[in-house]
């Protein structure tokens, strides 16, 4: 299979072209995954761009995104395939009148048209280029994780009634985890590993600018500064990138061209989810009776 990227820098540039701002860490792993044909396991707190990375990679490689959203209780029948049990029963029922030979019925009800294809099987069978996203894998039980591992190892599946179906391509596979539990060593060994954390100020500022283009540079800088400040506090849940973006949109909507203490006090709930965190942030950032920010005209927030 032809390689999709020729250098790490090219990955950075192409992701940027679809408004995804990566760094050497993110782009390096994508580049490597393409070359080594290995899945990527992306871990990190919620809202730092894990899911978005898969979408962006699909977009820049002209691939269709197939997504398996994980949840507690997800099993083989929802991840891989399932026989359409209702349809089969109805078929058997309908047959009672005609007294068809059982062998015929049996081979009939275990044929393609009674098969419910789930995302993993869909990915294996797909002929066109795809990116397979297995989202929030930490939410499945250990048994399902083992199933995923098996599928990822050979990219094939054998259905007793139909035989083995072998994948025609080695797509880019991205698994994400919000780190609510440790994944198995075996799965980790199989994958390349990427930990995405909250971005540095510069990258966050850029993300705000590409995602909310109406925001000017000075305001984007202030936004990133407030968020950095909040993340340095000892709070329960630090604001993520998606909250930063939500906040930027809120400011825009309310017509605030600059951030001051009053604005922060009024809109902090967009960035922080816990009352305790909001109270603490107010105490730290919004000091009673202080004037608003000065000197933002220069473009520098000094």
């Amino acid at each position: 299979m032809a390689e999709r990227f020729s250098s790490v820098q090219e990955v950075v540039d192409r992701l940027r072209s679809v408004d995804y701002l990566s760094d050497t860490g993110i782009a390096g792993v994508v580049y490597l995954a393409d070359r080594l044909e290995k899945p990527i396991l992306v871990e990190g707190p919620a809202g730092v761009g894990k899911t978005e990375l898969a979408k962006a990679v699909a977009a820049v490689t002209g691939s269709r995104l197939i997504r398996l959203q994980c949840y507690e209780g997800l099993d083989e029948s929802k991840a891989l395939y399932e026989w359409n049990y209702k349809k089969q029963l109805l078929r058997i029922q309908a047959d009672r009148e005609h007294e068809t030979d059982w062998a015929v019925v049996e081979s009939d009800i275990f044929s393609e048209s009674f098969l419910l294809t789930r995302p993993l099987l869909e990915a294996i069978r797909c002929e066109e280029p795809i990116v397979l996203l297995i989202d929030e894998v930490d939410r499945v039980e250990v048994e399902t994780e083992a199933l995923l591992l098996e599928v990822l190892s050979d990219f094939q599946v054998s259905i007793p009634e139909l035989g083995t179906i072998v994948g025609k391509q080695r797509p880019i596979v991205i698994l994400t985890s919000n780190n609510t539990r440790e994944l198995s060593e075996a799965l980790k060994r199989r994958c390349l590993y990427l930990h995405i954390d909250y971005p540095e100020l510069e990258r966050e500022k850029e993300i705000v600018r590409v995602r909310v283009p109406e925001i000017d540079e000075a305001l984007a800088e202030q936004i990133a500064q407030v968020v950095r400040s909040l993340r340095s506090l000892d709070i329960k849940k630090a604001p993520s990138i998606s909250e930063t973006i939500d906040w930027a949109r809120t400011l825009l909507l309310l017509g605030h061209g600059a951030v001051d203490q009053e604005v922060i006090a009024d809109t902090l709930h967009v960035l922080l989810k816990y009352q305790g965190d909001i109270a603490k942030a107010k105490k730290e950032l919004v000091t009673e009776g202080k004037s608003i920010l000065r000197g933002t005209e220069s473009g520098k927030t000094l």
């Binding site: 790490v8 792993v29 580049y31 060994r189 590993y193």
Partner: peptide
């Protein structure tokens, strides 16, 4: 073999991706 050695930061990241599986 895939990343030029002159690109030290990329080298660091790809090595980390293969060798470090816990943040």
């Amino acid at each position: 073999e895939i990343v030029p050695l002159s690109d030290r930061e990329s080298l660091r990241e790809v090595l980390a991706a293969t060798l470090v599986k816990h943040f």
